[in-house]
């Protein structure tokens, strides 16, 4: 049986793992290659690097991080953040990433999903979606790190992503992100029901039971968290033990 995936995410800026609230007070907290290696030892099913490098010149650095990680970590690697063109996708995959996560740029230019899927295969095109509720069971899609409401209906958008060839959706709820009260179950359920492709839950994990909760209440394929793992409040292994004890299949 297919195992539910637990995915730690590392926010990377200029080649360093960073953590901060919004973009204020960001502090460097580690070396991404070492962090990825540690997560690998804990049993991470995949590792996501989210590149928040502000400058264009800094873009090459994340590729070096991927290249070095790919030499010693043998689980799938995904890179998101700032990927805007087919060339960006190609460069990222060539550096050793297995998937790219496209977000704002895909909303601005949906053809990027189709071109990426046609050239490199759907399996490597994950669409990251940031969304926020406007009323119960209705959400709209945001871009630029949750700052701009595009007034696009979430369900219409994820269906369109699937149709364009996306291999996976990483769904981040702006309402629950950072609140640490658990994943956004209603939003997650609505998206999982709308598409056939795998959906990753993101945003809101604050305690051990939140992961199992998402898997019990929805058919999502994976759950992602950043700070919880990063600040060593929980290990991937602890999350998996909790899921296992509740009858959820994990690796």
């Amino acid at each position: 049986m297919l195992a539910k995936r637990i995915i730690p995410c590392l926010d990377v800026r200029d080649g360093k793992v960073v953590k901060g609230v919004n973009f204020e007070g960001i502090k460097e907290v580690g070396d991404p290659v070492e962090c990825a290696y540690e997560y690998n030892l804990q049993g991470a099913d995949e590792i996501v690097f989210y590149d928040i490098t502000a400058s264009h010149e800094g873009r090459g650095v994340i590729l070096d991080v991927v290249r070095e990680t790919a030499k010693k970590v043998f689980v799938p690697l995904t890179v998101g953040g700032g990927i805007a063109t087919v060339d960006d996708i190609r460069d990222t995959l060539r550096a050793g990433a297995d998937k790219v996560s496209v977000n704002s740029q895909a909303v601005k230019n949906p053809q990027l999903i189709k071109d990426g899927a046609d050239i490199f295969g759907s399996q490597c095109i994950c669409v990251g979606v940031d969304a926020k509720a406007i009323s119960p069971n209705k959400w709209t899609v945001y871009i630029n790190g949750g700052r701009i409401d595009m007034k696009i209906d979430l369900i219409d958008w994820v269906k369109k992503c699937e149709q364009l060839g996306a291999g996976e959706i990483c769904l981040n709820s702006i309402d629950t992100d950072g609140v640490r009260g658990g994943f956004d179950i209603p939003m997650l359920k609505a998206v999982v029901d709308a598409v056939k492709i795998p959906v990753i839950a993101s945003g809101g994990a604050g305690k051990l039971g939140d992961f199992a909760d998402a898997f019990i209440k929805t058919d999502c394929s994976a759950a992602l968290a950043a700070s919880l793992f990063h600040f060593k409040e929980l290990t991937v292994g602890q999350v998996k033990d909790d899921c296992r004890s509740k009858g959820i299949t994990v690796r």
């Binding site: 297919l2 195992a3 099913d45 689980v75 799938p76 291999g167 996976e168 492709i197 394929s221 994976a222």
Partner: peptide
């Protein structure tokens, strides 16, 4: 079924093969 079949699934063995030497009963592959 969710398609693609994406993620870690458990290997079940149906015949001996030298390729699978030393693997246990709880091996997941991607």
């Amino acid at each position: 079924l969710v398609i693609p079949h994406m993620g870690w699934n458990k290997l079940e063995f149906s015949q001996h093969s030298p390729l699978l030497n030393g693997l246990g009963n709880d091996e997941y592959v991607y």
